[in-house]
């Protein structure tokens, strides 16, 4: 497995380089301006966080998937928007307002994640049906609470800075995303929860007989995915200074695509955080490239769909078999 993992990491680095290289050839130098990279940097976190949530669900096995991510992110934004002004005014105390906003959004994410976790872990529902149901429920609550219209957050300096401004050249939200990813990587690699999660995903039966509390593990996994989704919701709200119930309608696909591209196994038991981060970055650069080339959104959806199928196929091909024997021997020694 480690060999395959390293290959995946190398592949994703190469993919990033390839996309950058092709943008050097296909579009003008404006693509390589600092501004464009910063703008890409502000867009990666929301996708990356949702993809990390999908990864956690997939790793846990048992047909795990989280379809409710973007719905929960939007709902967290909506509820925070409705409740935060009751506590602090955005004009008099912007910092406190932002804190309250973020706190309420996080609490919503925890509640939503806990609902998913309880349905899947304790009630024994299939992850697909449970998260399909909660996806509709969260979206529905967001529609119902807003009446279907977009909510204008208005210009609050501190929130706008968080969403769009760079610190030492790196956008705040992107730095936060990297921090969260690093923390998640540590959690998965060095804690008991992380080890048990991978064990549970690769062999649920063995995990149960080994005395793992599978129910509680599943609960915590989806709870974590919910929290990640709500952080994505805060970033989305800050970046766009508005909240819409149907924001990111193709994010369900994109989050799954990022996870699959990162080599996360849909059957469970394997996935790396760094690969998801790299995969999200590659997809964002590609998306910006298509934007620069003025290719329609419809074609982009088409391309994402095909790419998902392509990467699923990629996971089924043993590329080593096609490498000449001499090189293969080298590769083995090398790793």
């Amino acid at each position: 497995m480690p060999r395959r993992a390293d290959a995946q990491l190398m592949f994703l680095v190469a993919l990033n380089a390839l996309v950058l290289l092709s943008s050097l050839i296909l579009v003008d130098r404006q693509f390589f301006s600092l501004f464009n990279f910063q703008s890409m940097g502000t867009q990666v976190p929301e996708l990356g966080l949702l993809a990390l949530g999908v990864m956690l669900a997939m790793v846990s096995g048992n047909g795990g998937i989280d379809l409710s991510g973007i719905a929960l992110a939007n709902l967290a934004g909506v509820i925070a928007f409705l409740l935060a002004p009751l506590i602090f005014s955005s004009e008099d105390a912007p910092a406190a307002f932002f804190l309250a906003f973020a706190g309420i959004a996080l609490a919503t994410g925890m509640l939503g994640g806990a609902l998913n976790g309880a349905l899947i872990g304790y009630a024994g529902m299939t992850p697909i049906i449970a998260t399909l149901g909660t996806q509709l429920l969260f979206t529905g609550l967001a529609v119902g609470l807003t009446g279907g219209s977009a909510l204008r957050l208005g210009y609050v300096q501190i929130i706008d800075d968080f969403g769009n401004m760079p610190i030492w050249g790196i956008p705040y939200s992107f730095a936060l995303f990297l921090l969260i990813a690093a923390a998640l990587a540590v959690l998965l690699k060095f804690t008991r929860f992380g080890n048990h999660l991978f064990l549970m995903g690769s062999n649920p039966k063995a995990a149960r007989f080994a005395g793992l509390r599978v129910q509680s593990m599943l609960f915590r996994t989806y709870l974590l995915a919910g929290i990640l989704a709500s952080i994505a919701g805060i970033i989305i709200a800050a970046r766009n200074s508005s909240i819409k119930w149907d924001y990111g309608s193709s994010y369900v696909l994109v989050a799954i695509l990022i996870a699959v591209m990162a080599g996360v196994r849909p059957e469970g038991g394997y996935g790396r955080v760094i690969c998801v981060v790299l995969s999200a970055m590659a997809l964002q650069i590609l998306s910006s490239l298509l934007n620069f080339m003025q290719i329609s959104n419809f074609f982009r959806d088409c391309a994402w769909g095909l790419m998902l199928l392509l990467f699923l196929a990629n996971a089924r091909v043993d590329w080593n078999a096609y490498i000449p024997a001499a090189l293969r021997g080298n590769a083995r020694q090398g790793s």
Binding site: G63, I65, I128, V252, F299, D301, C302, W304, G305, L309
Partner: peptide, 26 residues
């Protein structure tokens, strides 16, 4: 595709859903 990719049908059909819809509209 579900047979060949040996992946969950949900994920495969999400892929074909977007590919088809995108192809129709573009």
């Amino acid at each position: 595709l579900v047979n060949a990719l040996r992946a969950p049908a949900l994920i495969v059909t999400i892929g074909t859903q977007y590919a088809l819809r995108g192809a129709l509209l573009s």
